[in-house]
């Protein structure tokens, strides 16, 4: 009966923690929106467009953190071969790709009015684009692999190689830009000009997105653990059937 216990316990415990997390994230997000649109002062130079910044910066930072989680999960998976680590890496990669996509879109929305161009080969932007391509490849190689376990290994390989590569990409683009200058500055240049309220709103928004990220990863992992529970049931049936 030990096996039936292990089948039910993760699925019965997961939702409660997840629901609490969902509630916290939801409340925090509503407050976040209120702060961004009602409390934060309108930027004297840029106007309302500047409010995109409160989304863009936390999302961009979270997306880089997400890929640190992918990297750590991938290394641990290759060493321990425990599917739990693969589940963490997989969930973080999926959420991370969504976050990078959002970061790119909010970046473009920001760039057009502020820099008067949709896109610029600025180091941070370029690195974000490469990051996006690397983790799309991560998800693709996982689903194109011949078996699920090979997919997990191939994805872990991409998770490690990609993460190690990103700093090299960043420096190569920074140096490239220093000799091919373009008339644009990074979003952090504005951060110096933040007044106290703005900085606090930004900090709060960042914390909100940390919760958002953790909640999304939990949601994705619980979906996968349900898939796996179903798989274990089929597994047991196949063993006893033969």
């Amino acid at each position: 009966m030990a096996s039936s216990q292990s089948l039910t316990s993760p699925s019965s415990r997961m939702p409660s923690a997840k629901t609490v997390m969902a509630a916290i994230t939801g409340v925090m997000m509503v407050i976040n929106l209120y702060l961004i649109f009602m409390v934060a002062p309108t930027d004297s130079v840029l106007g309302h467009v500047q409010r995109v910044f409160y989304f863009h910066v936390p999302i961009a930072i979270m997306s880089f953190l997400a890929f640190f989680v992918v990297f750590a999960g991938s290394v641990m998976y290759l060493i321990t071969r425990s599917p739990k680590w693969d589940a963490v890496a997989h969930a973080a990669a999926e959420v991370g790709v969504v976050l990078v996509t959002l970061a790119l879109i909010t970046g473009i929305i920001w760039a057009r009015p502020v820099w008067n161009t949709w896109w610029t080969w600025e180091p941070r932007l370029t690195t974000t684009l490469i990051l996006w391509l690397i983790y799309v490849a991560y998800l693709m190689v996982r689903s194109y692999a011949p078996t699920q376990s090979k997919g997990a290994i191939y994805a872990a390989v991409m998770g490690i190689v990609g993460f190690v590569d990103v700093p090299i990409v960043y420096y190569s683009v920074v140096w490239w830009r220093s000799i091919h200058p373009s008339p644009v500055v990074g979003p952090f240049a504005q951060a110096d000009a933040l007044d106290g309220t703005m900085a606090l709103v930004l900090l709060y928004s960042f914390i909100t997105f940390v919760f958002f990220f953790v909640y999304m990863v939990m949601e994705r992992m619980s979906l996968r653990s349900m898939e796996e529970a179903l798989g274990r049931i089929r597994f047991t049936l196949r063993r006893s059937g033969r």
Partner: peptide, 11 residues
């Protein structure tokens, strides 16, 4: 030994 959720050999 199993491949994914396919058990092949056991005990």
């Amino acid at each position: 030994k199993s491949f994914g959720e396919w058990p092949v050999l056991w005990d």
